[in-house]
Design a binder for these strands. Structure first.
Length: 472
RNA sequence: GGUGGGGUGGCCGAGAGGCGAGGCAACGGACUGCAAAUCCGUGCACACGGGUUCGAAUCCCGUUCCCACCUCCA
């Protein structure tokens, strides 16, 4: 069984061969922190979280770097509109992104560098590009420095485009450029720009252009050549194309794999900052538990379009509860006490699905099939098979970052002491109800059940007696 | 104009020449005092038209519709 990933640069699914045996280096584009995160941002991070976890599960030591682009045109514009320092706005939204990532259980990267902390590295890269004849100071005296796309024959290769076939950008400002497609590595300081957004450089004071920060930072932390570069599909062009061009033109091998996640659409249309049809993760978390949101966002293949509909979260919730119900029932049967330890397993079919370019939907099918087998075993009282299914379900859920038993997802449950007290109280009610039932006093029995239900305690009658759980 | 991805049962969503994907919803049954949960069963799914093949959702040709990117985008 071989680990295979889709590589956008070659447009093929091919075997993953790490540069260093047993290690994997992953860089994926985080946010330009110019506004609240929307679901698309989170889906992207989740896709690469699934990738990270599967690499780890497969035994790789993974180094993950995700950038924060904390200086760019939009940040400056919005800060000015807001009458707020740009760095305050950027940091505010950076934290909003962190919160969104955290709430969905997205693993922290190994490191998360900020663009503004890497100006010297960017200068070095620009210098190299100028020396190699792939960049030039603006032909006017703007202080800009541009990448010369015509000087780099491979330009367009990531997205399989030919420069001459591209539609000319209607709003391209050709001032000072040799070719309208040349992009800014460095933007000269202009009157009116904040003084705090100004750094000295050999080409005059200014600030970095978009694209450059990623090249500079990935090289610093992962080296001139690394395993995987990721990001949203919409970043392929121009962002990743430009990144690849400027890094390779500087003599770097750069990324071995380019992985791009699909967009999230809202009723068929791409969610986009510019259109404004976005859903805030916070809004989604008001509609469903974090685990359910994670399940929903992660259930489709990462390269597929994910279309959000109003019923999506409820459906995901039902699927999650099915898994949880089995885990709870199995746990109670296998480990009647509170504490237990386990070593999760993963069926071959699950691993095969994940190895095949992270086929999460197929992997989830294995998980659900295992849940059904486990439920059947529970009904049959086959403890060995229950345990087998239990360990497999937990192992698979762990690999996907969706283990309901993980304290990360604890919701209504309070401290162990509080839960213990609640258990005593509820059990007293259940005993009273058992007595009523023995007397076939259904009115009394149902009254107790309704009372508990009103308090958020769900009662379930099983062959072994009544059990309870908190309403999810 | 260029580049790429798609149209799968009521909905979501995998698969990619023969073998049940899976989930949600619905209906029928089992279990249950009734529920809930669970299990079993049901749906003649592959945009359309041709073709190749013993066999096509999957390959080929044509048609059609949708989406994304082409310097703000995860």
């Amino acid at each position: 069984m071989t680990l295979r990933f889709h590589d956008s640069a070659t447009a093929t699914v091919r075997d993953f061969v790490p540069l260093q045996k047993g290690k994997a280096s992953l860089y994926y584009c985080g946010a330009t922190v110019q506004g609240e995160p929307h679901i698309g941002h989170v889906r992207s991070a989740l896709a690469f979280d699934q990738l990270t976890r599967w690499l780890q599960t497969s035994g790789y030591e993974v180094t993950v770097v995700r950038n924060v682009t904390d200086i760019d045109d939009k940040i400056l514009v919005k800060a000015a509109e807001n009458n707020e320092p740009w760095w305050a706005l950027a940091y505010r939204f950076e934290q909003a992104f962190e919160n969104a990532y955290d709430s969905l259980g997205i693993l922290k990267p190994t490191y998360e560098p900020r663009a503004t902390g890497h100006i010297p590295e960017m200068h070095a890269l620009i210098q190299t590009l100028i020396e190699r004849g792939h960049a030039y100071p603006a032909l006017d005296d703007s202080g800009d420095v541009y990448f010369d796309v015509r000087s780099w024959k491979a330009y367009g290769s990531l997205t399989h485009q030919n420069i001459d076939d591209m539609q000319a950008a209607p709003d391209a400002d050709p001032r000072g450029k040799r070719d309208p497609r040349d992009f800014a590595l460095w933007k000269g300081h202009k009157d009116g720009d904040p003084e705090t957004a100004k750094w000295e450089s050999p080409w005059g004071a200014g600030r970095p252009g978009w694209h450059l920060e990623c090249s500079a930072m990935v090289t610093k932390y992962l080296g001139t050549e690394f395993d995987i570069h990721g990001g949203g599909l919409d970043l392929r062009f121009p962002h990743h194309e430009n990144e690849m061009a400027q890094s390779q033109a500087a003599g770097h091998g750069f990324a071995n794999f380019w992985m791009h996640n699909g967009m999230v659409t809202y009723q068929g249309e791409k969610m986009s900052k510019s259109i404004g049809n976005t859903i805030n993760p916070r809004e989604m978390l008001e509609l469903a538990r974090p685990l359910v949101v994670r399940y929903y966002l992660g259930q489709a293949h990462y390269r597929s379009v994910l279309d959000y509909r109003p019923t999506s979260l409820a459906e995901a919730g039902a699927a999650v509860e099915r898994i949880e119900t089995f885990i709870e029932a199995a746990r109670k049967q296998l480990f009647p006490g509170n504490g237990f330890g386990y070593i999760g397993t993963r069926p071959e079919a699950f691993a095969a699905a994940m190895d095949d370019d992270l086929n999460v939907p197929a992997a989830l099918a294995v998980l659900h099939e295992t849940v059904r087998a486990g439920n059947t075993a529970l009904a049959a009282g086959d403890a060995d098979r229950v345990q087998e299914a239990f360990l497999a379900v937990l192992g698979m859920a762990d690999a996907l970052g969706m283990n309901p038993l993980d304290e990360k997802w604890a919701t209504a449950a309070g401290s162990p002491a509080a839960l213990g007290a609640l258990d005593v109280l509820v059990k007293a009610q259940l005993e009273a109800r058992a007595l009523a039932r023995a007397e076939k006093n259904w009115a009394e029995s149902d009254k107790i059940r309704d009372l508990l239900a009103a308090a958020g305690v769900v009662v379930a009658d099983t062959a072994a007696g009544a059990t309870w759980s908190l309403q999810k």
